[in-house]
Design a protein around this nucleic acid. Structure first.
Lengths: 224, 224
DNA sequence: TGTTTAGGTGAACAAGTGTCCATTGTCAAG
DNA sequence: CTTGACAATGGACACTTGTTCACCTAAACA
């Protein structure tokens, strides 16, 4: 796909060739090893004399929102792949399928406290059709409550959730009053974020803390 | 070696309950976060007062060849799952899964006359979650138009269609004016059946003949 | 000509993190 | 009773690793 065109045509966004190389290495490393590289491993791969060379590129990638990192913690990358194709442009290899556990009884806790046996089923959605970006981590929830009817999500729907930090406008799975419900995540500028129900009969605002948001909704599946 | 105790039946191999818990946590953590936990994060999760409690269990898991680790390196796990399903294949405990072609340009003809090459993608939904009843010949459609907004089905949604005779109240894929749209199939008693758009701005009734109805909608999938 | 941006060097620090030692306790098997 | 596997405490050490500060080069830009 990406042939070496003379122009500075980057695969995604406005990544520099170097930045793209770094990103590719990180992705490949994880693919091969199952865990992420350390800064110094990246340094070594590119024969940098200083770890700060790597740091600079990572900072750039973070600024361009291509990757996410947990400050101070080793080997913790997250890659934001905007390669989730639009509905109409499903690639040829779209048969790639992800197996998603349906966490039915999630209300009492967080996903990582839910026993695997707690699944009420499994949902299989191919990457393209569900807007899947990372093949791990995601799970599905069955919607309880009517807090999102104004966003056309109804009780009983299955929502594919990808655990990641939300951005303004995302629909998120939020733990409120011990129950996981869907809310719209709103964050304007430097103001504190808040959650908003898409139902005119619900209170507009909800309190939010670090533990509230469990993930971002990527797709809806409804049985008729 | 093998102490054939009558009880203590562990999920896999001969893992202790505690070891199984640790393993499960590690797997869950990675599945949720995309990277592996540190020793101290495991310690914290289980309220151990010492990291060495974790070390003991990890050593045991390594000895039993359930996990692998790279000595001295942070957050580098490998999990040997003898039952690990391939990325694309469906685990045994999953409900039956159907592979559905997404027929994008279906308006001009009937589903069974459409070439497989006409697919714009594939959708994989398991039977339970999509209310799938028959695995034959089903296909998916991307909704164009707003004829079903009052039934909470919107433009861009993917609808799983099962070709069969409709019953009263079913949502059907109907060929009207050379385009496939969704309509509600109505048949009361001995009266002739008719189709009804679930949009108050559309005409209520549509003509119907044998060839009009292409199938019955079984599920909706929507990307967010 | 000064300024910005990308890319990089070098060195040092501090927090994150894996590892190890010595000890305690429980419980089932021999 | 002894032995060994399992479980856990407590503290300490040293390597791994992310981070930062100061400084450099080159190209692009206005």
């Amino acid at each position: 796909m990406d042939t070496c065109s003379p122009k500075q045509v980057n695969t995604m966004k406005d990544l520099t060739t170097r930045q793209q190389e770094i990103l590719t290495f990180i992705e490949h490393y994880e693919w091969r090893n199952g865990y992420w590289p350390s800064i110094r491993e990246i340094q070594e791969k590119f024969n940098f004399k200083s770890t700060n060379a790597v740091m600079g590129h990572l900072r750039a990638l973070e600024r361009k929102e291509v990757i996410e990192r947990i400050p101070g913690q080793a080997r913790t990358f997250r890659i934001n792949r905007p390669d989730a194709p639009e509905m109409n442009e499903i690639p040829e290899d779209a048969t790639e399928v992800v197996d998603i556990p349906v966490m039915g009884d999630i209300a009492a806790g967080y996903p990582d406290r839910v026993e695997p046996a707690g699944e009420i089923g499994r949902l299989q959605v191919d990457i393209a059709s569900a807007g899947y970006s990372s093949r791990r981590r995601s799970f599905a929830l069955q919607v309880r409550g009517d807090s999102m009817v104004d966003a056309e999500i109804y009780e009983g729907d299955m929502v594919v959730i990808e655990p990641r930090d939300p951005h303004d406008g995302d629909i998120v799975a939020a733990l409120i009053d011990g129950e996981t419900t869907l809310k719209r995540y709103m964050k304007k500028g430097n103001e504190p974020p808040y959650l908003k129900a898409e139902n005119k009969f619900y209170p507009e605002l909800y309190p939010i803390n670090e533990l509230t948001v469990q993930g971002v909704a990527k797709a809806v599946v409804r049985s008729l």
